[in-house]
Every structure is written in C-alpha cells, then in structure tokens.
Simulated scan of single mutants.
Amino acid sequence: MNLKSARVILTGASGGIGSATALALAQSEAQLLLVDRQAEGLQQLANRLRAEGAQAHAYPADLTRGADRQAVIEHAGRVLGGIDLLINNAGLLHFNPFEEEEPQAIERLLNVNVVAPILLARAVLPLMQRQGRGRVVNIGSIFGSIGFPYFASYSASKFALRGFSEALRRELAGSGVGVTYIAPRATRTPLNRSALNRMNEALKVAMDPPERVAAAVVDAVRRDRDEVYLGWPESLFVRLNGLLPRLVDGALRRQHREMRSYATQG
C-alpha cells in the first residue's frame, strides 16, 4: 500500500507504540484519525503532528462501546473521506498470577484486546470491499504464539487475535483487502508495570523501543505483508513452540519461580 494520502484509523494512538506509529505514518504523509480513551494526550499528539505539517485528527472513544465504535467510523468518513487502513493497536496488559486477576478486569481486557478490534474490522470491511482495497493491521504479541505463565489472560487475547487475523486473511483472499498480524516482543511502553520491567532486566529479556515496532508496522503495510514477528531469538521460539512445545515448557519451568516473585509484586 502506498501510504501517501492513505486514510488511516489508528487506535491506542496516545500510547507508546501508538504515538510512535502515528509519527511514522505522518512522516509517510498518511491522513490520520487518532483514537484513544485518553483525550488530553490524544489531542496533544494530534496538535504536535499538525504543527509538523501532518493531517491528523483526534477522536477520544471507548472502543468497548458499540456506539463509540460506530462514531469512530462515521467520523473517519467525515474528516478523511473514507478508510484505507485500520490499525488495531489499542490494548491492555496483565502481568499477574491468574488466580489473583479480578473477573471484571479479565472481561475488560478481552473486550479491549479481542472484541473491539474484531468489531472494528467488521465495521470497516464493507467500506473497503466496496472500494476494492484496504488493509486491517492487528497488533498482537509474541505471547499470541507462546503462552507465558503470569500472562494467561493477555496470552489468550493475543492468541485469539492471531487466529482471527489468519482466518479473515484467508476469507478475503483475492478481494483486494488484506489482513496483517504483527507480533512485537517485549517493548518499552507505559503498559508495563515496574515489576515487569524489573523481571525483564533480571532475566535479560530484550526490550524494543516503540519506534522499532512502529517501523515494522509501516514496512509491513507498504509491502502488504501478512505476518511479522519481531526479535531474535523470540521469532525462533515461536517456531519451536509450534513444533516442539515441550522444549519451551522446560525452558520456562526453569524461570518459573523468579517470574512468580515479580508477578506477585504490587
């Protein structure tokens, strides 16, 4: 896809990966509708991009609400004149023992990470099919291919998003509408609790800056890529987990006690 003048909805736009992606898209001369629950940070981002010459509009919304999702689509039609690209980036992250997670928190995470992106894709799909082109990009995680202890709800949500992306891509083959699934590894964003950052440091887990993920998103869209897994050896572990999951079980078991010590903090 040529991003120059492409009409883009970007969710979770004021977060770490979201704001970096917004900047990368603006540098590619895309037209942006930035969506997030955080109205103040969202407006600041839009103002910054406009000051740099970009076409960027802020639209605060709670994407777990059907009325807000529909309002986003309608607003995109008004200010952008259509939709060429939907980037489902909004998400929540839980790092806890599963038995300590509140049911309401689990439900909200699944609504934000799974239900909202699926229903947003459903809303934009007829528009893209009528114009015979478009792309849906779903931001997943390495944890959507490898189930990690103390990330049970989060892993479940990203497994679901990966399966949805694969199924929809196959369904839309030949339609002109593509589906991309991007799986970052650990990334330095405000979503991370301090205990998670400390655990990653203790276990020597590599953490990417949000800008690396943003660059991968832009590159994937330009090249019409179906799937992108970021990081080495994480992308290798994805393959190993698919072929020889018991090997990965053993590796994670050796780290289990240390991981739990961080997961139970605060």
Rank of each mutant, 00 (worst) to 15 (best):
N241Q: 07
M199W: 12
A186P: 01
L243V: 15
L236H: 03
A186D: 13
P190Y: 00
L196Y: 13
L230E: 01
N241V: 06
D219S: 10
N200S: 14
W232V: 13
D224N: 11
P184H: 07
R222S: 10
G231F: 09
A216L: 05
E211T: 15
L240I: 15
A186T: 10
M199P: 00
Y229N: 12
R185F: 10
D208V: 06
R188E: 10
L230C: 09
P245L: 10
N192H: 11
N197Y: 08
N197Q: 11
R188F: 04
A206T: 14
Y229S: 05
R223G: 07
V228K: 08
E234D: 12
E234A: 12
A206K: 08
E234I: 12
V205P: 01
A206D: 11
D208Y: 00
S194E: 15
L230P: 07
E234Q: 11
Y181R: 05
E234R: 02
V213P: 00
E211G: 14
P245E: 09
A202R: 12
N192E: 06
M199H: 04
A216F: 12
R239F: 12
L244E: 06
V177N: 03
M199L: 15
N192G: 05
A220H: 04
P184M: 15
V213Y: 08
R185T: 11
L196R: 07
L191R: 10
R212M: 11
T180P: 05
L247I: 14
L203H: 09
A202Q: 11
R239E: 06
V179L: 03
E201A: 15
V177E: 00
E201Q: 11
R198S: 07
E211Q: 14
A202D: 07
T180Y: 04
D226M: 11
L240Q: 15
L203D: 08
A195I: 05
V213L: 09
S235A: 12
R193A: 15
Y181A: 05
S235H: 03
R193I: 01
A195E: 03
A216K: 00
F237W: 04
V205F: 12
R239I: 14
P245A: 06
S235R: 15
V217P: 00
A183C: 06
R246N: 11
N192I: 04
E227G: 00
K204E: 09
S194W: 00
V238C: 11
V218D: 13
A195T: 09
D226W: 10
